[in-house]
């Protein structure tokens, strides 16, 4: 059937190698999940520190945020994987290196998200906490953080989707996530259109499913303002 006009779509070899994509997809999800967890911890700690700290700490935190936001993620991945181990005496695997990078990256964005979330907690709720005799730490723990979490949930969802897509960059340091799996199949079968078409569908469907789940969660926890 190989006519002169060209290219005959054939997905057979994609399906026979589908385990590469399936395993890659799971790894991508895992990388994104771990990174948003660590990133959220970084973001939360720095955001709480920021709103209660003096100028020196604020400058330090702003410096971190601006640095990360202005360096392309691809470059950050290279810096952490190739650069850091040559400067300081440490060694780590590519997946660990990528999780570190993506966590630092997520952390910088989430500092801003959490900081504005903390600011957006209605003042009346803090007054109510004060009036009943909660200490500052108790107000943070029982009033500010739970309310902030609900306010920032939409931004958290968006960040998680972004991170999930950004895991494709890990392919450049041979982390066997979804995009790397696609490249592997392409190199083996030369079915470039088919493999990337299937991979695209996997990203879109997974991303949409995550977003749908998170939106349900948001609706459950929405704060009245």
């Amino acid at each position: 059937m190989a006519g002169s006009m060209g290219y005959q779509l054939s997905f057979n070899q994609i399906w026979t190698n589908f385990d590469k994509l399936a395993e890659g997809l799971l790894l991508s999800l895992g990388l994104a999940f771990i990174s948003i967890l660590i990133g959220a911890i970084i973001g939360l700690v720095l955001a709480i520190w920021y709103v209660s700290a003096g100028r020196v700490a604020r400058t330090f935190i702003s410096g971190y945020v601006e640095f990360i936001r202005n360096v392309p993620l691809l470059l950050l991945v290279y810096l952490v994987f190739y650069g850091l181990p040559t400067v300081v005496n440490i060694s780590y695997s590519a997946p660990v290196s990528f999780v570190v990078t993506l966590s630092l990256y997520a952390g910088a964005y989430l500092v801003e998200v959490f900081r504005s979330g903390l600011d957006a907690v209605p003042k009346g709720l803090l007054d109510a906490g004060k009036a009943m005799g909660l200490t500052p730490w108790q107000r943070l723990l029982y009033v500010r953080l739970p309310t902030m979490t609900r306010i920032t949930l939409p931004a958290l969802s968006n960040t998680f989707i972004s991170l999930f897509k950004d895991t494709s960059i890990a392919s450049v340091i041979a982390v066997p996530e979804l995009t790397y799996g696609a490249q592997w199949i392409n190199n083996k079968t030369f079915r470039i259109v088919e493999v990337y078409a299937v991979t695209t569908v996997l990203y879109v469907v997974t991303g949409y499913a995550i977003l749908f789940g998170l939106r349900l969660l948001e609706r459950r926890f929405r704060v009245e303002r």
Partner: peptide
Amino acid sequence: LAGMRAETGMVFQSFNLFPHLTAEQNVMLG
């Protein structure tokens, strides 16, 4: 100061109930 404030109770014009807690949990927090 928190200890002093616990001696007074306050009811607000805009209610200011904690939105993430049920009615009972709002009363129980303090």
